[in-house]
Design a protein around this nucleic acid. Structure first.
Length: 574
RNA sequence: GGGCCUGUAGCUCAAUGGUUAGAGCAGAGCGCUCAUAACGCUUUGGUUGGGGGUUCGAGUCCCUCCGGGCCUACCA
C-alpha cells in the first residue's frame, strides 16, 4: 500500500468557478484520489480556497461586506459546490486560516535566516481617492502606442504592448476612475529565487516523466532573459497574512501582507494541519504527509493545476521549500491542463458566458458533468465545450451504453427469473471470452489511471461498458431461454454481476451512479476486481436485487436548445 | 517581438521512426426484440495544413511557410 498526497490548485475566493476551472484541477485530482483509494492506497486529498489579494477586497467592497465575512460566505458557497460535484477532499481549507498565517510567517522567517529575502524599496502608484496602492492592472489609461483608451497598466489589450503604469496617458484608477494618482515609495520583500536557479533547473531536469506543458513553462521562466527573476512576495494591502519573520515583527514592514502567491501554496500544508486540528489529531498525523523527517519519505505527492498555475508550482513554491532548509516534502509529479473553451470562445465571468458550477448542478446531476469533462479533459491542447457534443456524448455513453445495459439485463431477469440472481447452467467459451476481454481492458484502464491519462482511461472504461452489450447481444439469453433456460440463467447471472463490476470500476468517474448501481444490486462489496472471474461471481445465485430506475435519462433536443440560449451570455457590443 | 503547444475522416480524438493511419459520434446497410426509439454486426469516408529535406522506411525527425491556442513574471 502506497501513501499518496494529492493537491488541487486552490480556487480563488472571488466568485463561482466555471467548468473550465473545475476540469483544470479539482475534478481530475478527485478522479485520481478516488481511484487510488479504490486500489487500497492511503490518500490525503487537499484543497482550499485562495482568499487573499486585491480582487477579494474589491469583490467584498462591491458586495458591501467586510472582506473576512465575504470570504467566509464564499468559502461555504464553494464548499457546497464541491460537495455537489462529489469532490472527495479530505479537507477543504482556507488560505486565511490561522494555521496558514503561522506557517507562512514561519517560512518567511526561515527564508530570511537563510539569506533568501531581500528588502527592496520601489515606486508604486498610489490612489488617494481609493486610499490604496494599485496593482498595475488596476490602472487604466490611454495607450501611448496605439491610442486605445482602456489600456491597462501592465499591458494594452488592444495592441498587446507591454506597458509600465507610468507610460499611460491620463492614467486613472480602474476601481474608482479617479485620476488623483501619485507615485509613492514603498518597501517590499523579494524572494531571491534567482539564487536557487541552478538547483531548480537541475530538479526540473530530473523530472523526465512530467507533462511537456509543465516542464516547458518552468524552463521558459528559468532561462528567459537573464534567467529566473526574484519575485516580490509582499503587498500593501490590509487583507492577507501580516508580514512577520516567524513570530517576530519585521521592522519596516508594518501594515503589509504577504502576496497571495506566497501564502497560497503554503496553504496546501496548512490545510493538512487544519484537517488534523479539525479531527483533534496530533501534529504527527499531518507531518507524516509533509515532513520527510517524520514519515513523508515514502509519500508520493501529486499536484493538479491549470497551466496558468505552473510557474508558481514549479519554481516559487519549490524555492520556498528548498530555501527553508527544512525537510518539507517536494512535489513528485505535476499534472497540468490546458484550457476548456466554451462554444467557440472563452468562458467569461463578466459576460456570464458559459456554464458555472452552480448552474451546471441546477440542470443536471454531477455525474453527467463529471463524465463529459473528464472524458474531454484538455490534456494535450485546449478543448471545447459545445452543447451538441455534450448531449451526444452523455446520451450515447451514459444513457445508451451503460444505462441501457443495466436496464435491459435487470428487466430481462425480472421477467424470466424474478428479482434475484438465477441459479443453474454453467459458463461456456463465450463467458471465458468476455472475462478475457474484460481482464485485458481493465489492466489497460488501470495503466491509464496510474499514468493520469484521463481521456484514454475514459475511452477504455467506455469500451468495457460496451463489451457487456456485445456479450449480451452475442449470447442472446432471450433466444436461448426458449430452448435452454439453464443456459439463459448462466448468461443472466454473469450479466447481473457485470453491474457490480461496472459500479466499482466506474466509481472514480461517476460516483453517484455507481452508488445507485451498488444499491440496486444490494451489495456493499466494492472491492477492486483484481481477478475478474472472481469479481463476476460476487453476487451468488439467489442474491436479490432491485430493478433500478432509469440511471441516466437522456438530454432532449429542447433542453439543449434552451440551455444553449441561456448560457450564451451577453455578447459584447463592441 | 520571444518562447511553448497544436493542426490526422463531416465532428471529437488515437497511433515507442516500422504491415494497408485507427476508434467513438454522425452517414449508409443488415440483424436482434431483453431494453431508455435502446443493442450488435458490416460499411462509406484521409494527398495526416502546404512545400522541401534526412532515412531502406516519416503522421512521427529536420528546415520553411500558413492557420489555431497559450505564456511572457503586479489578476490569481
Amino acid at each position: 500500500m502506497a501513501r499518496i498526497l494529492i493537491t488541487s490548485a486552490i480556487p480563488y475566493i472571488n466568485g463561482i468557478k466555471h467548468l473550465g476551472n473545475l476540469v483544470g484541477s479539482q475534478l481530475p485530482a478527485d478522479l485520481y484520489a478516488r481511484y487510488m483509494r479504490a486500489r487500497g492506497h492511503e490518500v490525503m486529498f487537499i484543497c482550499a480556497t485562495d482568499e487573499h489579494g486585491t480582487p477579494a477586497e474589491l469583490a467584498a467592497a462591491k458586495a458591501g461586506k467586510p472582506v473576512a465575512e465575504y470570504c467566509a460566505e464564499m468559502w461555504q458557497v464553494q464548499k457546497d459546490l464541491s460537495d455537489g460535484f462529489r469532490l472527495s477532499f479530505d479537507h477543504f481549507g482556507r488560505s486565511s486560516s490561522p494555521q496558514n498565517r503561522k506557517l507562512t510567517q514561519h517560512f518567511a522567517g526561515k527564508l530570511a535566516e537563510n539569506g533568501l529575502i531581500e528588502e527592496v524599496t520601489e515606486k508604486q502608484v498610489y490612489s488617494n481617492a481609493d486610499g490604496r496602492f494599485l496593482p498595475d492592472r488596476y490602472i487604466e489609461g490611454t495607450c501611448p502606442n496605439c491610442g486605445y483608451d482602456k489600456a491597462r497598466g501592465d499591458q494594452c489589450e488592444n495592441c498587446t504592448k507591454q506597458l509600465d503604469p507610468t507610460d499611460l496617458i491620463e492614467p486613472r484608477s480602474a476601481i474608482s476612475g479617479s485620476t488623483d494618482l501619485e507615485v509613492r515609495e514603498t518597501k517590499h520583500l523579494y524572494l531571491r529565487q534567482s539564487l536557487l536557479k541552478d538547483k531548480l533547473d537541475e530538479w526540473i531536469d530530473s523530472k523526465t516523466d512530467w507533462p511537456i506543458l509543465t516542464t516547458s513553462i518552468a524552463r521558459k521562466w528559468l532561462h528567459d532573459g537573464d534567467g529566473l527573476r526574484d519575485r516580490g512576495i509582499t503587498r500593501d494591502l490590509d487583507w492577507g497574512v501580516p508580514v512577520k519573520k516567524g513570530d517576530q515583527d519585521w521592522p519596516g514592514m508594518e501594515g503589509k501582507v504577504f502576496y497571495v502567491w506566497f501564502d497560497a501554496p503554503i496553504e496546501y500544508i496548512a490545510a493538512t494541519k487544519e484537517w488534523a486540528d479539525a479531527h483533534g489529531q496530533p501534529d504527527a498525523d499531518w507531518q507524516r504527509w509533509w515532513r520527510t523527517d517524520k514519515g513523508a519519505d515514502d509519500v508520493r505527492y501529486v499536484q493538479f493545476m491549470g497551466k496558468d498555475n505552473v510557474p508558481f508550482h514549479t519554481l516559487s513554491f519549490p524555492a520556498t521549500i528548498m530555501g527553508s532548509g527544512e525537510p518539507w516534502k517536494l512535489v513528485d509529479y505535476i499534472k497540468s491542463f490546458n484550457y476548456l473553451n466554451y462554444d467557440g470562445g472563452q468562458f467569461s465571468t463578466s459576460q456570464g458566458r458559459g456554464v458555472f458550477m452552480d448552474k451546471a448542478l441546477s440542470i443536471l446531476p454531477a455525474d453527467y458533468w463529471r463524465w463529459w469533462l473528464l472524458s474531454h479533459a484538455p490534456e494535450n491542447s485546449d478543448s471545447e465545450f459545445t452543447w451538441e457534443n455534450f448531449q451526444t456524448s452523455v446520451n450515447k455513453d451514459l444513457a445508451d451504453v451503460l444505462g441501457n445495459f443495466l436496464s435491459r439485463i435487470t428487466k430481462f431477469c425480472r421477467s424470466k427469473f424474478g428479482e434475484a440472481v438465477p441459479d443453474g447452467g454453467s459458463y461456456a467459451t463465450e463467458e471465458q471470452g468476455l472475462i478475457d476481454r474484460l481482464t485485458s481492458g481493465l489492466r489497460t484502464y488501470e495503466e491509464h489511471m496510474e499514468a493520469m491519462e484521463i481521456r484514454k482511461a475514459a475511452t477504455e472504461l467506455r469500451a468495457l461498458w460496451a463489451a457487456g452489450n456485445e456479450y449480451l447481444q452475442a449470447a442472446a439469453p432471450w433466444t436461448v431461454f426458449k430452448t435452454d433456460p439453464d443456459r439463459a440463467a448462466a448468461i443472466t447471472r454473469l450479466s447481473l454481476n457485470l453491474i457490480r463490476f461496472y459500479a466499482v470500476i466506474s466509481r472514480p468517474f461517476i460516483p453517484d451512479a455507481s452508488a445507485a448501481m451498488m444499491a440496486a444490486m444490494r451489495t456493499g462489496d466494492d472491492s477492486w476486481p483484481e481477478d475478474v472471474a472472481k469479481a463476476l461471481a460476487a453476487l451468488p445465485p439467489g442474491h436479490a436485487f432491485t430493478v433500478p430506475e432509469v440511471t441516466f435519462r437522456k438530454i432532449t433536443d429542447e433542453e439543449r436548445e434552451d440551455w444553449q440560449a441561456r448560457f450564451a451570455g451577453q455578447r459584447s457590443a463592441a
